[in-house]
Amino acid sequence: MTVRTQGYLFVAITMLIWGGFTIFSRLNAGWHISAWDICALRFTIGFTVLMPILIWRRETAFLWKKEPFILGLLGGVAYCLTSYSAFHYVPAAHAAIFLNGCIPLCTAVAAYLLFKQPFDKHTWISLIIMLGAISVMSLMMYEQTHVALSIGDGLFFLSAIWWGIFTVLLKHWKLSAWQSMSGVAIWSALIYLPIYILFLPKHFQEASLMHLAIQGFFHGILVVIVATLSYVAAIERLGAFKTGSIVTLAPFMAALVAVPLLGEPLNTAMIFGLVGMGVGALQPWRWFNRKDPLQQQLNAQKKTASH
C-alpha cells in the first residue's frame, strides 16, 4: 500500500467517525441519554483505557503541566458539554452549520486575539461567505417559522469557539498527538467526574443498557482515541490542508444522511446554510494552483536520488 493510499484510508476512518459523531450525538436525545451522562460515560472510558497505558509507559510527568489541564478544560469538558447539549434542541444539520462550519472561522479569530496572527485572504473570503450564508439562512428561517436562531444554535457556536481556542493553543504548545489525546481525556475525567458525581443530575436508568454500551464505545473509544490517531496519521501522509478539507465534509454528509435515517427536517433555509457554510469551511478555491505536498516530497526525493 502506497503512502498516499494509506493517507486516504486514514482519512476515510476519520470521516466515518466524525460523521458518526453527529448521528450518534443526535441519537442521544431519542435514547434518553442526557448531555451530563454521555460526558461522564465518554470521560470515564477514556480515562480507564488511557491512564493505565500512561502508567505502564511511565509517561505521566507531562500531565502535571498547565497545558494538558487547559486543553482538557476547553477541548474536553467545555466543548463536550455545550455540543452534546445542543443536539437535544436542534437537528443534525444545525451542527454542520453552526459547529463544524464555524470552527475554521473561530480558529482564525482565536489565533488573531491570542497571538496576533492576521487573517489571510482565504480567511476573509470565508468570513464573507459564512456571514452571508448565516444571514440569509436566518432571514429565511424567520420568514418561515418566526424564529431565526435557537438555543441549540447558540450552544453549537459556543462549542465552535471552545474548539477554535483549543486548536490554536494545541498548535502553539506543540504537544504530540499522543500527549494531546491522552492529556485531554484524562484531565476531562479528573475535572468533570467529581462535579458530576456530587452535583449533577443522573438519568442512566432512563436509557437501555445496549444504548449506553453503544454510545460508550463510540464516544469513549472511537471518537477520543481512534479518530485522533487516524487524523494525525492522515496529516502525516497527505498534509494538513488536504486532510482538513476532506474530513470537514463528514459532518455535512452526516447532516444529509440524518434526513432519511433519523427523520430530520431539511428545508430550503437549512440547505442554503449547509451549502454556504460548507463552501466557507472547505475553501475549495484553494485547491486550484496548489500542488499536492506529498507529490512535492516524492519529486524532491526523486531529484535527490538522481543526483
Rank of each mutant, 00 (worst) to 15 (best):
residue 26 R to D: 14
residue 34 S to Y: 03
residue 46 G to C: 09
residue 54 L to D: 08
residue 205 Q to A: 11
residue 230 S to Q: 05
residue 296 Q to L: 15
residue 142 Y to Q: 15
residue 268 T to P: 04
residue 135 S to P: 13
residue 279 V to F: 03
residue 283 Q to V: 06
residue 102 C to Q: 15
residue 122 H to L: 13
residue 202 K to L: 06
residue 191 I to V: 12
residue 230 S to P: 14
residue 224 V to C: 01
residue 27 L to V: 01
residue 288 F to E: 04
residue 179 Q to K: 13
residue 12 A to F: 15
residue 128 I to V: 12
residue 55 I to F: 13
residue 114 L to R: 02
residue 254 A to S: 10
residue 84 Y to W: 01
residue 140 M to K: 11
residue 306 S to G: 00
residue 123 T to W: 13
residue 110 A to I: 07
residue 88 H to T: 00
residue 118 P to G: 00
residue 248 T to F: 07
residue 245 S to D: 07
residue 257 V to W: 11
residue 249 L to T: 12
residue 17 I to P: 09
residue 188 S to F: 06
residue 22 T to I: 15
residue 275 V to M: 08
residue 107 T to D: 06
residue 291 K to N: 10
residue 89 Y to P: 00
residue 126 S to P: 10
residue 198 L to W: 15
residue 248 T to Y: 00
residue 45 I to D: 03
residue 225 I to W: 01
residue 238 L to K: 05
residue 89 Y to D: 04
residue 219 H to W: 05
residue 234 A to D: 15
residue 202 K to Y: 05
residue 228 T to F: 05
residue 229 L to E: 08
residue 213 A to T: 05
residue 250 A to T: 09
residue 77 V to R: 02
residue 171 K to G: 06
residue 250 A to L: 12
residue 225 I to C: 01
residue 195 I to P: 08
residue 177 A to R: 13
residue 193 L to Y: 03
residue 225 I to F: 01
residue 296 Q to F: 09
residue 265 P to V: 07
residue 201 P to T: 00
residue 197 I to C: 06
residue 42 R to M: 04
residue 157 F to Y: 14
residue 229 L to A: 11
residue 212 L to K: 06
residue 50 L to H: 01
residue 143 E to F: 03
residue 134 I to Y: 09
residue 57 R to F: 02
residue 171 K to A: 07
residue 131 L to R: 08
residue 292 D to C: 05
residue 120 D to C: 03
residue 27 L to Q: 12
residue 292 D to G: 00
residue 233 A to W: 13
residue 280 G to E: 05
residue 288 F to R: 04
residue 181 M to R: 00
residue 66 K to A: 12
residue 218 F to R: 04
residue 162 W to Q: 10
residue 188 S to C: 02
residue 83 S to T: 14
residue 286 R to F: 02
residue 65 K to G: 06
residue 291 K to P: 10
residue 63 L to T: 08
residue 204 F to V: 02
residue 207 A to W: 01
residue 300 A to T: 03
residue 218 F to C: 03
residue 169 L to R: 04
residue 94 H to I: 07
residue 103 I to V: 13
residue 295 Q to W: 06
residue 50 L to C: 08
residue 52 P to K: 04
residue 16 L to K: 05
residue 156 F to W: 09
residue 153 D to V: 01
residue 220 G to F: 03
residue 236 E to G: 03
residue 122 H to I: 13
residue 300 A to N: 13
residue 294 L to P: 12
residue 139 L to S: 12
residue 72 G to Y: 10
residue 205 Q to C: 00
residue 231 Y to A: 01
